[in-house]
Amino acid sequence: MLYWSIVFLIVALVAGVFGFGGIATTSAGIAQILFILFLVLFVVTLVMRFARGR
């Protein structure tokens, strides 16, 4: 999921450089959502791992 977030971020940067504002905005939004989802799942996984370890 982090991989796709980085891919959409790169797409947004390239689109922004070439002047495609709509595509850049959409790609940046998708990248942001995927990154937040990645962080949430990462934290949940860490909490579950520590809870199971006891």
Rank of each mutant, 00 (worst) to 15 (best):
M1W: 00
M1G: 11
L2V: 09
Y3C: 14
Y3L: 15
W4N: 08
S5P: 02
I6Y: 08
I6W: 09
I6F: 11
I6L: 12
V7N: 04
F8D: 02
F8A: 04
F8E: 02
F8Y: 06
L9F: 10
V11F: 09
A12V: 03
A12I: 00
A12G: 07
A12W: 00
L13Y: 03
L13T: 08
L13M: 10
L13S: 07
V14L: 05
V14T: 06
G16S: 08
V17A: 07
F18Q: 05
G19Q: 04
G19Y: 05
F20R: 05
F20G: 03
F20C: 03
F20T: 02
G21F: 10
G21L: 13
I23H: 01
I23C: 01
I23V: 10
I23P: 03
A24E: 04
T25F: 10
T25N: 08
T25Q: 07
S27R: 00
S27N: 08
A28F: 05
A28I: 04
G29Y: 02
I30Y: 06
I30W: 02
A31F: 01
Q32N: 13
L34T: 03
L34V: 02
L34A: 04
F35Q: 06
L37S: 05
L37N: 00
F38Y: 12
F38V: 01
F38N: 07
L39E: 06
L39S: 12
V43F: 12
V43D: 14
V43K: 09
V44W: 11
V44R: 08
T45H: 03
V47A: 12
M48Q: 09
R49D: 13
F50L: 13
F50A: 15
F50K: 15
A51S: 15
A51R: 13
R52M: 15
R52K: 15
G53C: 12
G53N: 14
